[in-house]
Amino acid sequence: MTLKPNPFSHIDLYVTSFEKTLPFYEKLLPQLGFTNRYDSPKWKVFATQGELPSAAYFAITEDKAHQPNKNLVGFWAENQEEVNQIAALVKEAGGTVTAGPGLFPISPTYYSVYFEDPCGNGYEFLHRTN
């Protein structure tokens, strides 16, 4: 079996309320490269460039009983300034920064921001050189 350079396909994400969370994702995900939309009544899909099914995507659906947990989705940043920009955007869009932005003791260059969407789903946006 040959591994692909980036084996990521998609994330099926559950939120408690489209009304509460879609404005957040409509601001955040395009900044992370998920610029194409493919929506249906049940799923709101934010995809990277390219055609489905080969494009990476976030598929968001509503489940009023959803309970966030300790799972975390991480994204790469080009540099520390981009981490700072995403941290500001998260606050502006209604998310919660839970730690950072700043250096973390994972490595000497590990610069990150940890945050949650309005429903409590966890994310990290990070830059590191080692």
Rank of each mutant, 00 (worst) to 15 (best):
Thr2Arg: 11
Leu3Ala: 14
Asn6Phe: 11
Pro7Trp: 03
Pro7Lys: 05
His10Gln: 10
Ile11Lys: 05
Ile11Ser: 10
Val15Glu: 03
Phe18Ala: 04
Glu19Asn: 12
Lys20Glu: 09
Thr21Ala: 13
Pro23Val: 03
Tyr25Glu: 01
Glu26Lys: 11
Glu26Gln: 14
Leu28Glu: 04
Pro30Asn: 07
Gln31Gly: 11
Gly33Thr: 03
Gly33Asn: 03
Phe34Met: 04
Phe34Cys: 04
Tyr38Ser: 15
Asp39Pro: 12
Asp39Met: 02
Thr48Pro: 04
Gln49Asp: 15
Gly50Leu: 01
Glu51Trp: 02
Leu52Ile: 10
Pro53Ala: 06
Ala55Phe: 07
Phe58Arg: 05
Ile60Tyr: 09
Ile60Asp: 08
Glu62Tyr: 09
Glu62Val: 04
Pro68Glu: 00
Asn69Glu: 00
Lys70Gln: 13
Trp76Ala: 15
Glu81Trp: 08
Val83Lys: 04
Val83Leu: 02
Gln85Pro: 11
Glu92Asp: 14
Glu92Asn: 09
Ala93Cys: 02
Gly95His: 07
Gly95Asp: 04
Thr96His: 11
Thr96Asp: 08
Thr96Ala: 11
Val97Lys: 06
Thr98Asn: 08
Ala99Asp: 12
Gly100Leu: 01
Pro101Glu: 01
Leu103Ala: 10
Phe104Pro: 04
Pro105Gly: 08
Pro105Ser: 06
Ser107Asp: 06
Phe115Val: 02
Glu116Thr: 12
Asp117Gly: 09
Gly120Glu: 00
Asn121Met: 04
Asn121Leu: 01
Phe125Pro: 08
Phe125Ala: 03
Arg128Phe: 15
